[in-house]
Design a protein around this nucleic acid. Structure first.
Lengths: 258, 258
DNA sequence: TCCTATATGTCGGCC
DNA sequence: GGCCGACGTATAGGA
């Protein structure tokens, strides 16, 4: 964090100066202002005067937050072109993007507070136990799926980069395994069913196994009616195995599979 | 905006004081801090030290923003229980919620900036031309759907409170109309197909009409193969009609249909 | 409470 | 760049 700028009740001239400079230098800006908002694009919206918190990020993202709710009331994703102007005694901030063509206009009649600064943040964001992580562990220990389960050498591309496993059960029956790291719902069942339904036209005994930490009642019923099996997945056990990856084969899997 | 509090480089003691007071009084807080984040819940994530912007809102919503991207990297929706504590020389902010059980922990080793204030904002947020708005206009002027189209007195509950219209075309053929205010995709087609597919088992000539400002190529193909018709919807025309609602029947529709 | 469908969904994959 | 599918999706509305 170097050279933060903080100004309370700045004039429009001062505000415009701070904003223009910060925007051109891709510096983070927080603004608290009495403003009105116009958005036109895929949808359109309008909001009249009120005090809101506005963030302008270094990548062009724009966020307008009201006093409640966790989502921004209006926004522009990264890459927006941000311009600032003084018009009729009001400070206007516009954020435009093409494809889709969308414009966001913030008209301020009073700047309560403005701050701009650089954020030093190089940390990685680690989502723990992703579906891909579970996949890696199961690939290493197929018996976690089912005793004597053998994984097919050729992993079918089941669409959309999904981390699913195909193989053969102890009776040699071809089996498709779908992994979820969150409770399975009827979509999970339907998805697995889509995968195996055409396989079943030629060999009806193809098994579909859904592995998830949990399943809701309707999904369970749907699975039963579609002859899809559900087994609960012990995420803690998987996490324990995964956490020992330092000296283990998970690293090799990382290299070879991803 | 009354009595805003702004502090640069506050001590932990001072910060905790400001935070505790603001949280108990449900006052908006913006915090810029060098912090690390732990989230455990439906998923889990971890992020080590870095400078981020944190918002604590009056309704219990918590947002952690990094220097880029328009979405918060971690968050807690409204209703979270927020607690602040000093532990081992670090300031910890926890936001917990039940159902689903989720905890978000923000550990700060340096507070760069803290500000708390009330936001005066009573404005309404107006989303213009919703699907329901289009529905109202088409209910008033069925010929916009198709010349001589007659709307069925009994609107079928087609599921999920959908703003869809059923009626009869100029040949007396039963027709289901699905309205989209954004470009139609294959989901739109599939949805309409689900509605009419069982109707078609008894009367195969039932028509399905998809009305949208636009349609993508794959959806168009899917529609053709499922014998669903697509017609483009002139949103501008609809908006023009809708905007004249003051003295018109749209108001009556508002009262009677919603 | 659960289920369903929408969303300015966003995001990331692959083609 | 577009299409497709998952997401800590969130969110609203009905059963």
């Amino acid at each position: 964090m170097n050279s933060p700028i903080i100004a309370s009740n700045p004039s429009f001239i001062e505000s415009k100066d701070i904003l223009s400079r910060a925007i051109s230098k891709h510096i983070f800006i927080i603004l608290v202002a009495d403003c009105k908002i116009d958005y036109v694009g895929r949808s359109s919206s309008k909001m009249s005067w009120g005090e809101r918190v506005i963030m302008l990020k270094s990548d062009g993202a724009v966020l307008i937050h009201r006093k409640t709710n966790y989502k921004a009331v209006n926004w522009q994703p990264p890459g927006a072109n941000i311009t600032v102007s003084l018009e009729r005694g009001e400070l206007n901030i516009r954020a435009d993007r093409r494809r889709p063509r969308e414009t966001l206009s913030i008209t301020c009649r009073k700047i309560i507070f403005i701050s701009s600064f650089l954020l030093k943040d190089e940390a990685s964001f680690d989502m723990l136990l992703s579906e891909a992580d579970i996949y890696k562990v199961l690939m290493l220990y197929p018996s976690l799926i089912e005793p004597e389960f053998r994984i097919s050498k050729q992993q079918k591309e089941l669409g959309g980069g999904k981390a699913d496993i195909t193989g053969f059960d102890k009776n040699g029956q071809y089996t498709v395994v779908e992994i979820k790291r969150i409770p399975a719902d009827s979509n999970s069942v339907k998805q697995l069913y889509r995968y195996i339904s055409n396989l079943r036209t030629t060999s009806p005994q193809v098994r579909g196994i859904l592995l998830a930490p949990n399943i809701n009642a309707s999904a369970k019923n749907l699975a039963r009616s579609l002859s899809i099996e559900y087994y609960s997945l012990d995420l803690k056990k998987i996490a324990d195995i995964y956490s020992k990856k330092n000296s283990s084969d998970v690293e090799r899997l990382d290299k070879h599979l991803f």
